[in-house]
């Protein structure tokens, strides 16, 4: 049940970000200065943490989505759904730890 709640919440968060992300990328059609100025606003520690949270949401939604597919299409999927949830959470940690080390050292590394 909580994986279902989490899937819906992360889904909506990702969708809202996607709407904004297409709009900010569309500024390349306005001028190089407009795009670079707005993207420059993303390059601070607070937005860096926001990106980390966004990627955390995407990775959970991706892996739990694969679990939903396995539950729907694999004969033994419903039986093993709880074990697969633990697999999702472990895989999430395994992906997020190297991502956070790399991304946060870029964000807080200074340039």
């Amino acid at each position: 049940m909580w994986s279902w709640v989490g899937h819906r919440i992360t889904g909506v968060v990702i969708f809202v970000f996607l709407l904004v992300h297409v709009l900010d990328t569309s500024l390349v059609r306005v001028s190089p200065e407009a795009y670079t100025a707005v993207i420059g606003a993303y390059k601070n520690p607070i937005m860096g943490l926001g990106e980390a949270a966004l990627v955390a949401a995407i990775v959970f939604h991706a892996f739990n989505g694969l679990r939903i597919i396995a539950i729907d299409f694999w004969k033994k999927g419903p039986k093993y759904q709880r074990q697969m949830l633990w697999t999702v959470l472990i895989a999430w940690v395994v992906v997020m730890v190297p991502f956070l080390i790399r991304h946060l050292s870029i964000v807080f590394g200074g340039h």
Binding site: K43, E51, A62, G65, D72, F73, R102, I106
Partner: peptide, 30 residues
């Protein structure tokens, strides 16, 4: 289900190229 599987490849590739390679987010400009 089908678009979800394809999106995992597309978005993970997108995030890896734009955030992990080179200077990461610092490299993103026009």
């Amino acid at each position: 289900r089908l678009s979800g599987v394809v999106l995992i490849v597309l978005i993970f590739g997108h995030l890896f190229v734009n955030l992990m390679l080179g200077q990461g987010i610092h490299a993103i400009d026009f």
